[in-house]
Amino acid sequence: MTNKIFFTPGPSELYPTVPAHMQSAMENKIGSISHRSQQFKDIYAHAVAGLRQLLQLPDNYEVLFLSSANEIWERAIQNLVQEESFHLVNGSFSKRFHEISGELGKKAGKYEVPFGTGFVPAEVAIPDGAELVALIHNETSSGVCMPAEEVAAYRAKAPADALIFVDAVSALPHPAFDYSQVDSVYFSVQKCFGLPAGLGAWLLNERCIAKAEALQAAGVTIGSYHTIPAMLSKAKANQTQETPNVLNLYLLGKVVEDMNKRGIDTIREETEAKARLIYDYLERSENFEIAVQEPAHRSPTTIVANTKLPASEINKLLSPFDMAVGSGYGNNKESQIRIANFPAHSLSQVQALIYKLESLGV
């Protein structure tokens, strides 16, 4: 058994109540039930209802569960783009979504800024032919965050029939999106929801559904087993197309229930308070430098710092104290660290991490 606290950006620290819910799941043999049973339908409905409450999701939104956010990228392009998509790119994950569209044979346009840099809406020109506009709210690789209120600016600039997609993989449930300005938001559970990897949630509105149905009716191939109409027909019956990650779906419903008991306002306030502590420490540290220069674009949930000491050395120093931070992403593996600030991380744990880093002289 390990007591290590994982401040890694995903997989990350498990939500504190997960062990108890896991024990309950084992006692009730949740992993053995049929995904066509009433018991599973109840599990599915419970998770969806909890997410609707936590995220304050409007009634015109549906919730689909897939294997990961990566899969959602592919399904989105297959189902909703006949010819052209447009992507804001400022890091490795937004870049990968753009690449996937091209790999699927679409005309994939992009507006790209340097790694670690945010966007200025007034400088972005969205093509008239864009059917899907991919925004990156929280770039997990670089720690850049798009203020939630800026999403509306891209809705205003986009073609009237374009679909606005928001990557909130490492941010939700923190951002308070105006869902009337967005057509789809998606996330994975191994980050802010404090669960094991293997489940992605796709939130999409009636405009996405109508577009997929229109393309299908026109004879355009939008996939096979995972078309939006097919997945939606099962979702409305509280089911999935294939046998899903039943255990993770069960745990998601339980954790979301726990989060709703805390209240979304409390979760947001705690996230912002912990982020301030971490950024304040980085500003006074002699070893670290905040990687995102513009304060308005600094992520409150995935905090990235340049480091003089290699990231691996920092984790060696932290290891005897049962703590781990994330290394930088890709080419920045050793030159940066990433500190996750998720609902699973308590204020006292964040304070302990800062205290230990300071006492170690880093």
Rank of each mutant, 00 (worst) to 15 (best):
N260A: 11
Q349F: 06
Q82I: 00
G143K: 02
R36H: 12
D265A: 15
M22Q: 12
N331I: 12
M323T: 04
G31M: 07
A218L: 01
K274M: 10
E272W: 04
Q293K: 14
S233N: 12
T266V: 15
K356W: 14
A148F: 12
S285D: 00
P320H: 14
K236E: 06
R155H: 04
E139H: 08
A212H: 03
H345D: 00
G129I: 08
N90D: 07
L199R: 08
I100H: 02
G198F: 13
A130M: 10
L172Y: 07
I30K: 04
E289I: 10
P16R: 04
R155E: 00
R207Q: 13
K157C: 09
V246L: 12
L199C: 11
L80T: 05
G50M: 15
G194V: 13
E150G: 03
H137K: 07
Q190F: 12
T140H: 08
R75V: 09
I30P: 10
N3C: 07
P121R: 00
F288G: 04
P295A: 10
E269H: 14
D183M: 09
G10S: 07
N238A: 00
A340R: 02
G10L: 08
V292K: 01
H46N: 11
L132V: 08
E206N: 01
L57P: 01
L54W: 01
F193M: 06
L135G: 01
E334K: 11
E149H: 14
F40K: 02
L88F: 07
E13V: 00
S188F: 04
S24M: 12
L135C: 07
V246S: 06
F187Q: 05
H98D: 10
M146R: 02
S12E: 00
F6N: 07
R52H: 01
E84G: 13
S319V: 03
A324R: 10
